[in-house]
Design a protein around this nucleic acid. Structure first.
Length: 974
RNA sequence: GCGGGGGUUGCCAAGACAGGUCAAAGGCGCAGGGCUCAGGACCCUGUCCCGUAGGGGUUCGUGGGUUCAAAUCCCACCCCCCGCACCA
């Protein structure tokens, strides 16, 4: 067993050597083809965990693989500071929010003394950025760090301004009105990250149907305006305060709580006076559709925060209403006056529903055995009825022109009609209210006016995006459908916010460009950022005053527009630098492969396609996208509350970087979620140690002299060549799991067979070490993209110079494929397995084993059968044909029997196999078995005889030889 | 609801696009053996059922179909997961 390795020391030493030689710094090289890999840059508001490592590791493997295939490969990295989460987090930290303090100190292990420094969003970002960067270095990503930038760098802001000016010029920016979840205290939209408990605000539309008394309007909020025909009364909350207010010129009565909501949805509201509910109860109002006079009744279930606090009552079709009326009749049993009103309030049936009575609400009350209006079953009854009626209900005769219509259709129609008469409005609500902002304020729906949008709905732009997608490689390919769907479905998207980090909208400085909009073309910026850093003296002046860097600079370097003289004159940037930037951009662009996790398909990655298709000429459109699944931890989703998150750097320290790299890729194919576990990481570590152990055993000393290879040697080399071929195929499609399997594991099966066939080591009598060295050397090259540190270690231990990560990817040279050797070993192995089967089934301990290879005539028939099957000859004809041969006919029944069997086999054989066996012709089985007699003797610890079926001196006590067939010798044991 | 992904032998997970060499890779677990003072370490063997001759039987969510042949192709159904926006 190999001694325990110091993984970190080993990895650090190779990383140091790589960095010393700057081998991952990539510049234009006209002699080589380029390959450009990017991965979605991290958002530094927390340390990375092993889950994040999956995307980056796959990107790194891809970069390293292409580098070894001879491509001049660029893999850069930046950091995304834009947006509100960093902002919100530093604010919460500043307020001493115990939850976040605990996360930072306990989960992230940040010393409490550090916290003070993180209360500024940029400092917090810098802190995590450094941590993330260290992790990326420790895991050995082959990143060109000279190009690093953040999205709040002044020159990046300038770049995004340029980007948005272009969009604006092309008419892709629109201005409009849009509803958002809103915190009235912060005066800002709230997303899921801004709410207590990370609740996603869910905005839904409801209707306000305007009931009326004289010139006063009672807007009732409802989701089912079509039930207005069945309204028997209105409900108001008897304990609430209502207001009479002028709303957009009309007189409305609504609950006090609704006023603010109406105002946020652009209604002009002036309160005239407050009205206690008691003042409204038992009065009547007029139904806007049927003109019936109906009473206003007390409903304590009316939520003050919901809608207008005025609700239609449809007891025929709403279980709540039905039950409330029943309860009310009980409550007012002693009041004659109220009794009269309540007696007159009878459910009205307006929807016909198969399998229900006239009053489905009553049916369901019965079915769910509802006791009173506080019964939780009412909710289920309501759900069931609403959905049934919506899909299957038909409007009855008492609904005028809607009679006979499906409910779903009637709803649309009635909304249209009432809207045209000014009798209905819409009201937006938070369906999952109450949603509480982190500041403690209840959120509501706000209609933002003059909001800026990127118009992904533009049909011409969609066409371009589709065209771009069509020429891209999508991995895994199953995701293409999702991209197509997203491209079709995207419409205007708000692209600016009032708060957060980022770039100001160039033509409207009140707005900051939102985070998913400023991160779609940054891949081009990596070309620029190298020069901004390298030629710092020249670019510093722009950093201090970005307005001095004109659009013309970007137009020239990135689009090739304008003339160098003008730009040089305007910017005072030397022409040679401008030319160098332009040349480098043209060399590296487009991006060949963009890596990300699956969750970005429906937003970032689609935007990426849109923007590139519009901004850049076709030849610079992105070439490919790979979107991988997530990482599970010990089979479970990672979550803070489960405390099952392993920070990446901690994982590296514990398991080593190569084991972590393999660990996040090895257990599932690209699109699937993969499962990381401590046991897995440790077993990978063992595996890699064992390979290093092999290298140690072989040593650096090379075998001299000319080798004479045996069939078995050639077999091993041939198998190696197959492994190279399948590993190459796998990595070409980024099937990293498969590649790991072949390179790290499956190759061992062949090596084990090779050693088993060779038997105990006999010094100088075989090519064992020479072959094993060759296998290990090739294997190490293939390991280099996956486990670069381990590969380097092995590479140097077996006496190779230079870095294996800079070596060539092995060639899948056809001439090393040896079909004959592969056939021979397959035969030997098959016979071994068959013998084992027989031993198992019979329980015999053999003293002697005899193998009988098939006689020549069987081969003749066999090959004829293959040919016949290929030509689709009928079985009967084939047998006739065979028996037409006088020599075969002389064999009698044996020949007929075998011919029948052979043609049947041949017919069922896969085409490919039939072809190759036909091509191979007669296999010299006797020779092959003769070479392996000592092997079988060793395996079975008994004497082994070998005969040909046609051998005149044959020893065949049980007459088994006649069972022999080509590729399947008969076996006898005693 | 719309869109996407998926249901494989105890568990995880390949295979499906290109039907046949598929009782179906690999890992884990389990059983036996080896090594060992011992082992959660390592190596071998076995792991759907039956079988004293390399064989047979029954399996890949369910039910049909196409085919000489279906885990794989077609149709219908059931179940699970993910996305649906102003949020990175």
């Amino acid at each position: 067993m190999p001694a325990k390795l110091d993984w970190r020391a080993l990895e650090r030493s190779w990383q140091k050597k790589w960095n010393w030689r700057k081998i991952y710094e990539t510049n234009l090289d006209p002699r080589k083809p380029k390959y450009y890999v990017t991965a979605a840059y991290p958002y530094p508001n927390s340390p990375q965990h092993v889950g994040h490592a999956r995307t980056y590791t796959i990107a790194d493997v891809n970069a390293r693989y292409h580098r070894m295939k001879g491509y001049n490969t660029l893999f850069p990295m930046g950091f995304h500071y834009t947006g509100t989460p960093l902002f919100a987090m530093s604010k919460r930290l500043g307020e001493g929010d115990p939850e976040i303090v605990e996360t930072f100190t306990k989960v992230y292990g940040i010393p409490p003394a550090m916290l003070e420094k993180l209360k500024d969003p940029k400092s917090m970002a810098s802190y995590f950025r450094e941590d993330i960067k260290k992790g990326m270095m420790e895991i050995g990503f082959s990143i060109d760090w000279r190009r690093e930038f953040t999205t709040v760098d002044p020159l990046y802001n300038r770049y995004i301004e340029w980007h948005f000016q272009i969009l604006n010029r092309k008419g892709l920016i629109t201005k409009g009105t849009h509803p958002v979840a809103w915190c009235p205290n912060d005066k800002s939209p709230v997303g899921v990250v801004d709410t207590q408990g990370d609740v996603e605000p869910d905005i839904g539309e409801s209707y306000l149907v305007k009931f009326r008394k004289d010139d006063v309007i009672y807007p009732t909020s409802t989701l089912r305006p079509e039930t207005v025909f069945g309204v028997t009364n209105l409900w108001i909350n008897p304990d609430a305060t209502y207001v009479r207010a002028k709303v957009d010129g009309e007189l409305w009565v609504v609950i006090k709580e609704a006023v603010e909501k109406l105002q946020h949805q652009n209604h002009k509201v002036t309160i005239e006076r407050e009205i206690p509910a008691s003042e409204l109860l038992w009065k009547t109002v007029q139904n806007p559709v049927t003109n019936n006079e109906i009473p206003i009744l007390p409903g304590s279930f009316v939520e003050p925060d919901n809608g207008t606090g005025v609700v239609m009552s449809v007891p025929g079709h709403a279980p709540y209403d039905y039950q409330a009326l029943t309860d009310l009749k009980k409550r007012y049993a002693n009041s004659a006056e109220s009794q009269q009103v309540l007696q007159d309030t009878k459910p009205i049936s307006i929807i016909r529903l198969e399998g229900f009575s006239d009053l489905p609400a009553a049916d369901l009350i019965g079915k769910f055995k509802v006791k009173d209006q506080n019964d939780p079953h009412l909710e289920h009854a309501t759900q069931e009825l609403y959905s049934k009626e919506f899909h299957d209900g038909i409007m009855r005769e008492n609904t005028g022109s809607y009679s006979g219509m499906l409910v779903a259709k009637a709803r649309e129609a009635i909304v249209r009609e009432l809207a045209s008469q000014g009798k209905i409005e819409t009201l937006l609500e938070l369906r999952n209210a109450p949603v509480v902002c982190r500041c403690g304020t209840k959120c509501l729906v706000h209609i933002l006016e003059n909001q800026w949008f990127i118009n992904y709905g533009d049909p011409e732009w969609k066409k371009l995006a589709h065209k771009c997608l069509d020429q891209m490689a999508i991995l895994p390919e199953e995701l293409r459908g999702e991209f197509n769907y997203t491209i079709d479905w995207l419409r205007e998207r708000a692209c600016a916010r009032a708060v957060g980090l980022g770039t100001k909208l160039p033509w409207d400085q009140n707005w900051i460009i939102e985070a998913l909009s400023d991160s779609v073309v940054y891949m081009a910026y990596y070309i620029l950022s190298k020069y901004f850093t390298k030629d710092w003296v020249i670019f510093k002046k722009f950093e201090n005053d970005t307005s001095r860097l004109p659009d013309a600079f970007f137009n020239f370097t990135l689009l090739g527009e304008g003339t160098i003289d003008t730009v040089a004159e305007q910017t005072r940037i030397p022409k040679r630098i401008l030319n160098a930037i332009r040349a480098e951009f043209q060399y590296f662009y487009p991006v060949d492969m963009r890596h990300s996790a699956r969750d970005l398909v429906s937003n970032h990655l689609s935007f990426y396609i849109f923007h590139h298709s519009s901004l850049f000429p076709e030849k610079q459109w992105p070439k490919g996208i790979v979107a991988n699944g997530f990482v599970l931890m010990e089979g479970a989703k990672m979550s803070k509350s489960l405390e099952n998150i392993i920070p990446l750097r901690q994982g590296i320290a514990k398991f080593g970087s190569d084991p972590v790299r393999v660990g996040v890729m090895a257990t599932a194919e690209l699109g699937q979620d993969t499962d990381f576990s401590e046991g897995l990481a440790l077993s990978i570590q063992e595996r890699l140690s064992a390979l290093i152990g092999q290298a140690r055993k072989l040593g650096a000393k090379k075998t001299a002299g000319k080798p004479k290879f045996s069939t078995l040697d050639r077999w091993m080399v041939s198998r190696l060549s197959s492994a190279v071929q399948s590993a190459t195929n796998a990595l070409d499609r980024l099937r990293v799991r498969e590649a790991i399997n072949i390179i790290l594991y499956q190759l061992d099966n062949d090596i084990a067979w090779y050693k088993r066939r060779l038997g105990p080591k006999k010094p100088r009598s075989d090519n064992r070490d020479r072959i094993l060295r060759k296998v290990l050397e090739t294997r190490t090259r293939m390991m280099a993209p996956l486990t670069p540190h381990t590969a380097e270690e092995i590479w140097s231990r077996i006496g190779n110079k230079g870095f294996v990560v800079q070596a060539d990817w092995p060639q899948e040279s056809e001439n090393e494929k040896d079909a004959l050797a592969e056939r021979a070993e397959a035969l030997i192995r098959q016979a071994l397995e068959d013998t084992g089967e027989i031993l198992k089934a019979t329980g015999i301990t053999p003293k002697r084993i005899a193998y009988y290879t098939a006689s020549d005539w069987k081969w003749e028939v066999y090959l004829k059968a293959l040919k016949a099957a290929k030509e689709k000859m009928r079985q009967g004809d084939f047998i006739k044909d065979v028996m037409g041969d006088p020599q075969l006919r002389s064999l009698g029944k044996a020949a007929v029997d075998y011919a029948a069997k052979a043609i049947q086999q041949a017919n069922q054989m896969p085409d490919e196999m039939r072809q190759s066996r036909l091509r191979d012709g007669v296999t010299a089985e006797s020779t092959i078995f003769a070479d392996s007699v000592d092997f079988y003797q060793r395996e079975f610890k008994c004497t082994v005889d070998l005969w040909n079926e046609g051998d005149p001196s044959i020893n065949d006590p049980k007459g088994r030889a006649r069972m022999s067939e080509p590729y399947r010798p008969a076996i006898y044991l005693e």
